[in-house]
C-alpha cells in the first residue's frame, strides 16, 4: 500500500489560513491503513484546524468528508455535491489522490495535507516500512524475495557494500542491510551459490528515468 505522513499542522495552517471555506477530504484506503489520511483522520484534522482557527481568531468554515478511494472515478459520484461547497479542498490522500481530485474539480484549488512517502507494508501496529519503488522490472526472483532497489540505500545490485555491519546499514544502525537479508534468505532457500551470479546492468527505462509511465489495457477500455 501507499504510506503517507501528515504534514505538520503549522504547514497546513499556512496553506489554508486565508481561505473562507475549507473541506478536509480523506481517502479511506491505503492512507487510512497507516492512520494518516483516512476519513477518520480527516475528521480529527478538521477539529484540530477548527481549534487552531479559533486560537488565531480567524474566521474559517472547516468541514470534513471523505471517500473510499481518491484515485478512481466511481467513488466520487456521491461526493461531488460535498466537493462543490468549499473554496479549497485539503486532500489527505496520497499525491495520486490529490492530483486526481484536482482534475475532477477543474479550477478549484486542491491542497496536499500529506507527504506521500513510500509503498510499504505494515510490519507491526504503527510500523510501516518501504518495500517497493515500482522500478518496472522486478528482480525479486533473483534476490530471494528481498528488494535491493527499495531496501538498499545505494540500491546496489551486487551487494552488500563495504558498509554492512552486523546486519545493519552504514547509514543507520536501526536499518537492516538488505543484502544481509538477501544472503540470509538465499542461504535458507539453499541457494547461496546464486549469490555469485553477477546481476546484469539494470534497465532503468521502465522506472522514473524513462518518463511518466502508463499502462493501456485495450481489453478493459470502453
Amino acid at each position: 500500500m501507499i504510506v503517507g505522513d501528515q504534514k505538520p499542522l503549522e504547514e497546513i495552517w499556512e496553506m489554508i489560513k486565508n481561505q473562507k471555506k475549507v473541506l478536509v477530504f480523506g481517502c479511506n484506503t491505503c492512507v487510512a491503513v497507516c492512520h494518516t489520511g483516512g476519513n477518520k483522520e480527516a475528521e480529527i484534522l478538521g477539529s484540530m484546524l477548527r481549534m487552531k482557527a479559533k486560537q488565531e481568531g480567524v474566521d474559517i468554515d472547516i468541514k470534513d468528508s471523505g471517500i473510499e478511494r481518491q484515485c478512481e472515478h466511481e467513488f466520487y459520484e456521491k461526493a461531488m455535491e460535498t466537493l462543490e461547497w468549499p473554496d479549497v479542498v485539503l486532500s489527505i490522500a496520497c499525491g495520486v489522490g490529490v492530483q486526481f481530485t484536482a482534475e475532477k474539480l477543474g479550477n478549484k484549488p486542491v491542497l496536499p495535507g500529506l507527504n506521500t512517502t513510500f509503498m510499504g507494508s505494515v510490519d507491526s501496529p504503527g510500523l510501516f516500512t518501504e518495500k517497493c519503488q515500482g522500478c518496472g522490472q522486478c528482480i525479486l526472483a533473483e534476490t530471494g524475495g528481498i528488494c535491493p532497489v527499495s531496501r538498499c540505500a545505494k540500491r546496489v545490485m551486487n551487494g552488500p557494500c563495504g558498509g554492512s555491519t552486523k546486519g545493519k546499514c552504514e547509514i543507520n544502525k536501526e536499518l537492516d542491510c538488505a543484502w544481509q537479508l538477501i544472503v540470509d534468505r538465499l542461504k535458507a532457500l539453499g541457494r547461496l551459490d546464486d549469490y555469485e551470479k553477477l546481476a546484469p546492468i539494470k534497465d532503468w527505462s521502465n522506472e522514473r528515468s524513462g518518463g511518466p509511465r502508463k499502462i493501456v489495457r485495450e481489453d478493459l477500455q470502453v
Partner: peptide
C-alpha cells in the same frame, strides 16, 4: 567503487545516482 552514502557528507539532501554498481 560504490562510494560512501551521501548522508555522511556535506550534501546530505542530495540525490545519489547508483545507475550501476561497483561490480558493474
Amino acid at each position: 567503487l560504490s562510494g560512501d552514502h551521501q548522508s555522511f557528507g556535506d550534501c546530505a539532501k542530495g540525490q545519489n545516482v547508483h545507475d550501476i554498481d561497483s561490480m558493474q
